[in-house]
Design a binder for these strands. Structure first.
Lengths: 290, 290
DNA sequence: GTAAGTTACGAGCGACGTAAAAATG
DNA sequence: CATTTTTACGTCGCTCGTAACTTAC
């Protein structure tokens, strides 16, 4: 019977051009290769090589066989890989979100509901999330708006409200509310990896320069020590990772700065995530939490 | 390493639903199957089966693996088949013709030119021949007309002229030439497997009934013993396989009944058939032969 | 009780490597 | 003379089958 090991040796010979080199490469003795090539010729029942006294070369049949062997070898590898990733997909749950805040309670929630699964989470652009959900890259995605698709399920997952954080001495610090255009042009401190917020800031405040900080510690230092205006949100403040003493946090009035998040998942996965859906629906009634 | 024998066993198990039946089918002991399935799980490093005490069933991973295994198994078979037929193609030369007569001298000619090759010949409809040449089913085709294709080579291969063969007592037996419509309506004796001629007869003599004879001996008997008109051609008469004594053979004047055959082959094969092409061209000058 | 899967064990065969020979440039 | 392929030979190891055990319907 044709065996993968034989195909491997054939491919190695095609690559190395001599049996000796191929044998060395595969950590086999050279006679083993000679035998394997003979066996292949017997199995195919056609000559695959030009057997000269001390030179073995592929003939046309052999070259064709090598082509097929490579394809088969590749597909055999794919087969194993696909089955493994299929299995892995059953033990992992990938969440994609448009912003970090929804993940703060979503991931722990999912962890406690699906203790046996590995929870992976990523922050990506909305368009990528939508595509990823359809392609199976994500099982659950969080978007800042509700998208109604017939084969999707969507349920609200809290709200988030953007604030300006101004030094007390700032001329606008006395205001109860602000529109983004009122600070357009000022240099702003911004924490990185804030998902869709970043695009929003740059769109609504095109004249501002944004000083992005990817390190939480550096960002906190700058918030405390500088007089640069920055951003925060209600969820961020509740989480208390940054000390805003000496600053006034003023709600931003623009409608785009006040979002409701929605979890979306494929209707075909409803059964798998039944526990999560029940949990979401029970929260939905308990509106105080938000 | 993954082995084809393991895939075979996996497929057999998927088909038979129990290891015992699969083992029986493959003429192996049942423990061999148990081991092979274990090995597969080790190679994939994911569970493929639901191991119950006395029942083994494929889980989802396993079902996926079986799908791939079937595909791979099929392709491995294809691989061998393709290489074999590729090799065979190098040792065979398939000729397709629209009528039998051109083959009478073409096949012996090719045999003597390419003694090491097996010559296969078939009579088919022109459309099938054209398709077959392009697809590689035939290396050489003979058509009753010249077709000019940029990547084809075409050269004439003789002429053939159709005759009516009438009993001497037939009212038209004295004529020097006849048109087909003049005998339309009479019952005619026809030898089978005459290629495109058959279609021509039926088209030009729609009111005649044709008594097809596929056996040469029966046909000859009927020609001798009956007074039914029949057909012959100059090439057929030269070949002398039928005794026309007591009959008058009268040329048919319709242009379609007087054809020049053309051999066609792919220009890409010109080198391979160089000897044949030279031979054809030298005959072409020697017009007396026709 | 029958039929299925798993485990244990022993034997046989086959695959591999070493060694030697032959050939080529 | 170095490199390569092929052949011969001996041994190690792996694979297979038999047999015994366990379980379920």
């Amino acid at each position: 019977m044709l065996e993968f090991s034989q195909l491997e040796m054939l491919i190695a010979f095609a690559d190395q051009r001599t049996l000796s080199k191929a044998a060395e490469m595969l950590h086999l003795s050279q006679p083993t290769l000679t035998r394997a090539m003979k066996q292949l010729e017997e199995e195919f029942r056609v000559p695959l090589f030009d057997h000269r006294k001390n030179r073995l070369t592929l003939n046309e049949n052999g070259q064709l066989a090598v082509e097929y062997a490579r394809k088969l070898w590749q597909e055999a590898g794919d087969m194993v890989e696909r089955v493994r990733s299929f299995d892995r997909a059953k033990h992992t749950l990938s969440v994609g979100a448009c912003a970090p805040a929804p993940l703060w309670d979503l991931v722990p929630r999912l962890s406690s509901l699906y203790g046996s699964l590995t929870i992976g989470s990523e922050i990506r652009e909305c368009q990528q999330l939508i595509q990823g959900l359809n392609e199976g890259t994500y099982q659950i995605i969080v978007l800042p708006e509700q998208i109604r698709e017939p084969n999707w399920i969507s349920l609200p997952w809290g709200q988030e409200h953007l604030f300006f954080s101004l030094p007390e001495a700032h001329p606008l610090a006395h205001r109860q509310g602000l529109e983004m255009r009122e600070l357009d042009g000022e240099n702003m401190l911004v924490f990185s990896n804030i998902g869709f917020w970043q695009e929003l800031l740059m769109r609504k405040m095109p004249h501002s320069r944004f000083l992005f900080q990817s390190d939480r510690f550096s960002f906190n230092q700058l918030v405390r020590s500088s007089v640069l205006p920055c951003f925060t949100t209600d969820l961020s403040m509740k989480r208390n990772t940054t000390d805003y003493t000496g600053r006034v946090n003023i709600p931003i009035l623009d409608p785009e700065a006040n979002v409701t998040y929605y979890c979306h998942l494929l209707r075909s996965q409803a059964e798998r995530f039944q526990a999560f859906l029940q949990d979401m629906r029970s929260r939905e009634k308990d509106t105080d939490e938000w």
